[in-house]
């Protein structure tokens, strides 16, 4: 494995090692023995994973291995697909999110999501951000709402770029700005976890760098799970990495370990590009 340890990937992962002497408390989300089916087809097979607020967790793996499927299981977005079925337990703060008493609406307010393709609503920038707080009744008066909008846009690093054009349509922004708008929109309802499904795959390198920076700043405040096809991105932004293959969780651990010292041959093949 010496060849991997010297690779640039491993170097990046080593840098993120510096962050790792953080005390970890209880995991924010805990998945145990989770299967996901589409009709008869099993897309996820008995996956165990912990998500911590202190770390960014990256899901990597070849296309079709079930990363999105599992990610969507974490805030029950799979409920919108009639054929999808989830078994096993997924807990948020120790509470089973698939329990019958669980309010999906509340759950999704606590576990937000950012999609692969930026999907701002065809409303003004302001209304895009205000949408969540309004439906969840987080702001009573206009000044409160203004406050939330500004704070969210600042956190998403978009405020300076859009503060003079809050009434413009959200769809009139550039792709990278739209994606940060979507992140700001997710932040606006003050979630505990943010799930991101390939948030940079439609963006150029500069916009990607901005989002990665943003993810790094958000770490610690929100539990962040990011699906990515870019090994470099996983190495740069995450502290925990999960490698999926054919619906199985092959390996899950410290990002630095996965990239320098994987225990599984399949992981090593994938991250060194030897995977078919």
């Amino acid at each position: 494995m010496a060849d991997i340890a010297d690779s640039p990937l491993a170097n990046q992962a080593n840098k993120s090692l510096e962050h790792e002497n953080i005390e970890t408390g209880e995991p924010k989300m805990r998945a145990r023995d989770v299967d996901v089916y589409y009709g008869q087809k099993k897309a996820i097979d008995s996956v165990d994973i912990d998500v911590y607020t202190e770390f960014v967790t990256a899901f990597i793996g070849p296309s079709g291995c079930g990363k999105s499927t599992f990610l969507r299981a974490l805030n029950r977005m799979n409920d919108t697909i009639p054929s999808a079925r989830v078994t096993g337990t997924i807990e948020l703060d120790g509470e089973d999110i698939y329990a019958s008493g669980m309010d999906v609406v509340q759950l999704r307010a606590r576990v937000g999501m950012v999609f692969q393709k930026p999907n701002p609503f065809p409303k003004s920038i302001y209304d895009n951000i205000a949408y969540g707080p309004k439906i969840h009744g987080l702001a009573d008066a206009k000044p409160d709402l203004d406050n939330i909008v500004e704070k969210s846009l600042r956190r998403a690093g978009l405020w300076e770029e859009v503060k003079d054009r809050l009434t413009d349509s959200g769809t009139a922004l550039s792709g990278g700005q739209q994606q940060r708008l979507c992140i700001a929109r997710a932040i606006a309802v003050d979630p505990e976890v943010i799930l991101m499904d390939e948030p940079c795959s439609a963006l150029d390198p500069i916009a990607t760098a901005k989002i990665e920076e943003l993810i790094d700043e958000l770490r610690g405040r929100y539990g962040i799970v990011i699906v990515t096809h870019s090994m470099q991105q996983a190495a740069r932004v995450s502290q925990r990495t999960a490698f999926f293959h054919l619906g199985n969780l092959v390996e899950y651990g410290h990002t630095s370990d996965i990239f320098t010292n994987p225990t599984e041959q399949r992981t090593q093949d994938y991250i060194t590009g030897r995977y078919g």
Binding site: R110, F115, N119, I135, C182, A186, V189
Partner: peptide, 26 residues
């Protein structure tokens, strides 16, 4: 687009809110 609807549902909007505030305006 379905993405618009998903975006709203993922914010914790109910089906009804999504229809009223996102789908019909769009």
């Amino acid at each position: 687009p379905q993405a618009m609807k998903d975006g709203s549902l993922a914010m914790g909007a109910t089906q009804n809110e999504t229809i009223k505030r996102v789908l019909v305006p769009a």
